[in-house]
């Protein structure tokens, strides 16, 4: 009986390996370097069907077709950028996992920085205001000691 969990684990792992192997087509790469390049490139491209997966991992039919397309372009000597452009021409910037920095993506790229700066400014202003108000506030609280607890968090 003790063997059973181990057997189950082994079987699960074996099947997991099988599933992972199926996601990768046996493409006739020239050498290992090309295979690495292919894996790296397809990992940067989005599958249009299951949009949270990249081309390398997706089992969707279209993803397989596009992998073959990328492979074919690679064989014909196209560079990574040319292959990306080829797909962008057909499927828009959406196929790129990393959106390019351009007019309509500025907010996407730098929005978080803006929010961070706004937060930092708020903190700076608050801290400065509190420091300025320390002495009177301390006096106040001593005067009102026990009378009022609801000083709260003063922004």
């Amino acid at each position: 009986m003790r063997m059973l969990p181990r057997l189950l684990l082994a079987a699960t792992l074996a099947f997991a390996g099988l599933a992972a192997a199926q996601a990768i087509d046996p493409l006739p790469f020239k050498d290992h370097a090309q295979e690495v390049r292919f894996q790296k490139l397809t990992a940067q491209l989005r599958c249009l069907v299951c949009q949270n997966e990249n081309l390398a991992d997706s089992n969707a039919d279209l993803a397989r077709d596009l992998r073959h397309e990328v492979f074919g372009l690679m064989q014909s000597g196209k560079s990574d950028d040319e292959i990306k452009q080829y797909l962008v021409d057909r499927y828009s910037d959406f196929v790129l996992y990393d959106p390019p920095v351009q007019g309509n993506t500025l907010l996407l790229w730098f929005g978080p920085l803006l929010i961070l700066l706004a937060g930092a400014a708020t903190v700076a202003v608050t801290v400065r205001r509190r420091n300025r108000g320390t002495t009177p506030a301390a006096v106040d609280s001593k005067l009102l000691d026990g009378a009022s607890n609801d000083r709260g968090d003063d922004w």
């Binding site: 279209l62 077709d65 397309e69 057909r90 499927y91 828009s92």
Partner: peptide, 13 residues
């Protein structure tokens, strides 16, 4: 049948 031309059209479904 192969869906090759469909890639040129940007068909994804």
């Amino acid at each position: 049948r192969e869906g090759r031309t469909a890639i040129d059209f940007g068909v994804y479904g």
